[in-house]
Design a protein around this nucleic acid. Sequence first.
DNA 1: GCGTCGTATGATACCGGTGTCAACGACACG
DNA 2: CGTGTCGTTGACACCGGTATCATACGACGC
Lengths: 360, 360
Amino acid sequence: MSRDMTRKPKRAKAETISFNGKRPTINDVARLARVSKKTVSRIINKSPFVKEKTRERVEALIKEIGYTPDPMARGLASKRSFLVGLIYDQPNPQYVIDMQQGILDVIRGSGFELLVHPCRRQAPDFLQNVRAFVERQKLAGVVLPPSVSEDDALVEILQEFGCPYVRIASVPLDEAEHSIVTHDAEGAQEAAEHLAGLGHTRIAHVSGPDTFRSAHERRAGFVKGLKAHKLKLERELDIKAAYTFQSGVDAGRRLMALSDPPTAIFCGNDEMAAGVCQAVREAGYEIGKHVSVVGFDDSPLASRLWPALTTVVLPIRLMGRMASTRLLGESLIHEPPQEETLGEVHPKLVVRGSTGAARA
Amino acid sequence: MSRDMTRKPKRAKAETISFNGKRPTINDVARLARVSKKTVSRIINKSPFVKEKTRERVEALIKEIGYTPDPMARGLASKRSFLVGLIYDQPNPQYVIDMQQGILDVIRGSGFELLVHPCRRQAPDFLQNVRAFVERQKLAGVVLPPSVSEDDALVEILQEFGCPYVRIASVPLDEAEHSIVTHDAEGAQEAAEHLAGLGHTRIAHVSGPDTFRSAHERRAGFVKGLKAHKLKLERELDIKAAYTFQSGVDAGRRLMALSDPPTAIFCGNDEMAAGVCQAVREAGYEIGKHVSVVGFDDSPLASRLWPALTTVVLPIRLMGRMASTRLLGESLIHEPPQEETLGEVHPKLVVRGSTGAARA
DNA sequence: GCGTCGTATGATACCGGTGTCAACGACACG
DNA sequence: CGTGTCGTTGACACCGGTATCATACGACGC
């Protein structure tokens, strides 16, 4: 029975070798390495219960014949896919792209792929839709940027299916393990202090809608920054808008129509800031000279406007890397840099031409 | 030995009926319907060889117990996944987002999902990277927007693995079946005629890099439009740039530094147009009054600039829908609208404030 | 009445991995 | 020297579908 044909088929090619016209499977590896499938499986999955000697031998063979495990077969057997989901309800394209890129920075090369799932949180079938998504795909993990990160019902669904997740938000919403905190308030505070430091005293705020936690945080941070300079946010200078360009235009018009218009305006995002700039200009004032404007996000818009917009930047791509590092941890091939295992990031003010000293 | 099952069975209105604590499988359906797995499989896959009576009975049961097939198991057995890939090398976030959304418009609800794969075409491991991607994922199809659509080596890989693909490009690059043609030249021509029609005669062009087919097409269409008005593109007004904001600034500066600067500038994309606008302004001229500027893409930037940019718009999202409709065809649940089974789209000029009559 | 189809269905072997559990050798311990 | 333990390995069922091929059956031609 134990008669073994001790034939060593030395393969020279480093490319993927074809077995029977197809790419090699775990069976091919097992047969050639004279071990069982299970041992190969253990090696693929970095199980510690494999003798060093065996591991080396099999790994060499795997590399030689160019074997890579089939994600579907793995998924079927293990009831867990090699897909990371990004669920978002975000109107800011640059944000989404950066986030996607950040996630991919980390998962690329580890056999994982990124599944994108835009959605509209206010749609009636939103939860059902997401539920079907996570149930069927058995995701390895889900990244939740704002504002879906704030949706507790959504998170409950993820928990129900035992799906790992990371919530990215301006404040901690969950256990640290599940959170990336962006501290938007700090950035807003810095913006306020920047404006106050330039001598402005009549400073307005155009904020995002209540449905976004970030809108609240940015406003709160801004108020705090004012307070540090003994200023307060006047009621008539405190305008609620919608994070959209048009709502920014409207807000700007209202502000500039006041009998005593503000000399500086901090906006909850760049879109609104761009709208405000337009309204300010319409009213005959010059941005950065008569009226200073600050945005938030550092969207591409900010640097292309004229004058370029002073704004607050968050390291979105890094956040994406942090989130996926959180999710996959040891499953990854490369050790992530220290920075990317942390759970917090901090916004930073970028000063450009749209802000200037208050005129005496 | 107290059982510490601290898990809360939080059943949030589960639609699907649980079988043995798990979601139903094809076996459950077969058993309950008193048919074989294979018959259920036929029904799922819309095989015509099932008696109408049987089909109805089983479909009713499927709906009742909320069965949905497991994409992994299907994929493993059929050697084809239910994932659509989007491979792109695109710096324009809005383009990518729209394309993603368009693809999802079509595939959502049909059990397909979208896998995104950004890449850098000039990276040394680009092809190897893509090869591993398509080989391992066994994609149901791949959408190739510009500029990856122009990469023949990439397409060859897709063909090698029998992976369906659609190339989106300004001109037909492949059999009609594999192409979505955007006719960028038409849009550029329209832009040229718009400017000429406003009385401009000294019209410049700032074009994208040679590595983009669209750059060539847009320039060609522009020249054609000029010719229709008996104008030609002067050598000194024909500037090659890089599709980036900064390259637009540089190009604009060069143009405005000429002894006889142009009174109108058509740019290969909005990014460069924004840059040109900045340079024009620096030079002391007013956009839309002294110098008219036209862009291409209708990126968010275009409408937020001041004055808003006249530009050429392509229906990106529709293109995404067309591409995925091409790929999946009958596999889809909903019949796509007529428009989305076509293979061509046409750009359209959007006139805004950045263009105005030439001054006498 | 019988052989020949075409249609409708099922039995069973896969697809390429993972999970379970038993087997096995080596070694320490009693 | 028997026995338990640990580290390592393999046999085999199983995940949830699809593919192949056989089979049952009514209709049809002769």
